[in-house]
Design a protein around this nucleic acid. Structure first.
Lengths: 133, 133
DNA sequence: CAGCATCCGCTACGATACTG
DNA sequence: CAGTATCGTAGCGGATGCTG
């Protein structure tokens, strides 16, 4: 068992705000927490493109991610019902990931987010450039 | 100067992935990083509702946030051109926050996110309930 | 190939106390 | 009222090595 990592659920990051407790807002915040995590969005963007993707395909598609993080984020997304995993009973093993039905419904939202991001004023895009590779 | 906190810019969480370097993807990732942070979305939702809001109004609206975090997140949002700050030269001081024009353009995206969040299957909403207050 | 296990640095976040 | 300063901590995320 890992010490801290891994299977913790943290809606909108670790301890949730007791924000409008009991109301709809609270649960919406919880649900949005599903998207938290450094690589979740990137992974989702990747899966939107190509229906089914193998673990190694995702690794190649996102060179900067470590194996640990890739698995961890995928597992959390799976646990939260956004992506699903297909294990092919073969040797060597083949595992494929894809979006669940609910996960696919994210598309419009992410599209809008992209549109917004691309509408960023030049000054802001400039300011956001982080030097050093 | 604070040790680590505060004025760090961390697109999509601290060190960005050298994901599709040079392409548009990279800068989109950077821009989306603007929304990162535990309270950013909550604050933005709050500001969508009521045009101008005072610091203390935000505090009251989001009881679980600490002063430090509220300021920090507001400052970052301000720096990134999403919210703006109006300081009224009065005693006692009055400061009001509101969305910039670009910030307002986030509305469709956040709307879609809400729609998605509310479309969560009951099983998932159930699973997301975190016990203990 | 897909994945766990483990050690570890770093930092985002929280709680508390103080100020103009 | 609207902040700043400081300290302590959880746990995210990286690197490396091992397994079926």
């Amino acid at each position: 068992m890992t010490r801290t990592d891994e299977n913790v659920r943290y809606p909108l990051r670790s301890k949730r705000p007791d924000y409008a407790p009991g109301s709809g807002a609270r649960s919406v915040q919880n649900v949005l927490g599903v998207l938290e995590g450094r690589w979740k969005l990137i992974i989702l963007f990747e899966l939107f493109g190509g229906r089914l993707k193998r673990f190694s395909e995702l690794e190649r598609a996102i060179p900067a991610i470590s194996q640990k993080m890739l698995i961890q984020q995928l597992r959390q997304l799976e646990r939260d019902g956004v992506v699903a995993r297909i294990v092919h009973p073969e040797v060597p093993p083949r595992v494929e990931y894809h979006l669940t039905e609910w996960g696919q419904r994210l598309c419009p939202a992410l599209d809008q987010l992209l549109i917004w991001a691309e509408s960023a004023p030049d000054e802001i895009r400039q300011a956001l450039i982080v030097p050093e590779g």
